[in-house]
């Protein structure tokens, strides 16, 4: 069985609302003034969203995640290399989970 009309409608509907939101953010931002409070607000969104993405994972994670986050931060601050920081984080979380579970 390939699919059903119901599944097709559901997937197309999901695709449509997802695209509308993604396009809508850019179009709405174009309506905002390019200086003053609105501009300052837009400028602070990236840092705030990234902080919001990361914070709960670190607080609710096990000690392994916290140690790995520290390793990630340390490697990034010393090397300014994103890939190295990511690799250090993944390697540390892998080892820490092994050691802490054992």
């Amino acid at each position: 069985m390939l699919t059903s009309p119901e599944a097709l409608i559901a997937i197309l509907g999901m695709a449509l609302v997802t695209f509308a939101i993604k396009a809508g953010g850019l179009l709405l931002a174009n309506r905002l003034p390019s200086d003053g409070f609105a501009a300052a607000w837009l400028r602070h969104i990236p840092g705030a969203v990234l902080a919001a993405l990361v914070a709960p994972a670190l607080v609710t994670g096990s000690p392994a995640e916290v140690i790995a986050a520290a390793a990630t931060g340390l490697v990034f601050i010393t090397s300014r290399n994103l890939f190295a920081a990511m690799a250090a984080g993944v390697a540390t979380v892998y080892l820490a989970r092994l050691l802490l579970a054992g």
């Binding site: 902080a51 990361v54 601050i77 984080g89 993944v90």
Partner: peptide, 17 residues
């Protein structure tokens, strides 16, 4: 540990900002 790649990358990006 590959699930941590997401958190690690976003943390490094945040620090870079």
């Amino acid at each position: 540990g590959l699930d941590f790649a997401f958190t690690a990358t976003f943390l490094a990006l945040l620090l870079g900002m």
